[in-house]
């Protein structure tokens, strides 16, 4: 792999991350509902996380096992959160 092109790729990702960060900072000034703003923020956060994982952590170059190790716990956390809803959110 050519070192210089890789480096340029990293700079681009970095620029994207900073852009997205700025976007989420100013999202609260958008003239839309609060729920939409919060949703937007977490979509942006997820995109940032995926960018870091795929490019900085080289997940896009890894074999399926590493993917599985990375994705399984994320699914489990989401499952845990869903299962906690009835007791702590819906009960209110």
């Amino acid at each position: 792999m050519n070192g210089t092109t890789m480096t340029r790729g990293y700079v681009i990702i970095w620029a994207w991350l900073l852009l997205l960060m700025t976007l989420s900072l100013f999202a609260s000034t958008l003239p839309v509902s609060r729920a939409a703003i919060v949703t937007l923020m977490f979509v942006v956060a997820a995109v940032k996380a995926v960018l870091v994982a795929l490019h900085f952590m080289h997940l896009k170059l890894e074999q399926w096992l590493i993917y599985a190790i990375a994705i399984l716990p994320v699914l489990l956390v989401l499952g845990l959160m869903v299962a906690l809803f009835p007791d702590f959110v819906l009960a209110r």
């Binding site: 590493i66 489990l76 956390v77």
Partner: peptide
């Protein structure tokens, strides 16, 4: 590399458990 990814998987669960608790507490 395999080892650190397994370790990070357990770290995702650690922070995930904490963050899930916070999110639930916020929404509730």
């Amino acid at each position: 590399k395999v080892a650190i990814w397994w370790f990070l998987a357990s770290e995702i669960m650690l922070f995930g458990g904490l963050i899930a608790s916070f999110v639930i507490s916020r929404l509730g």
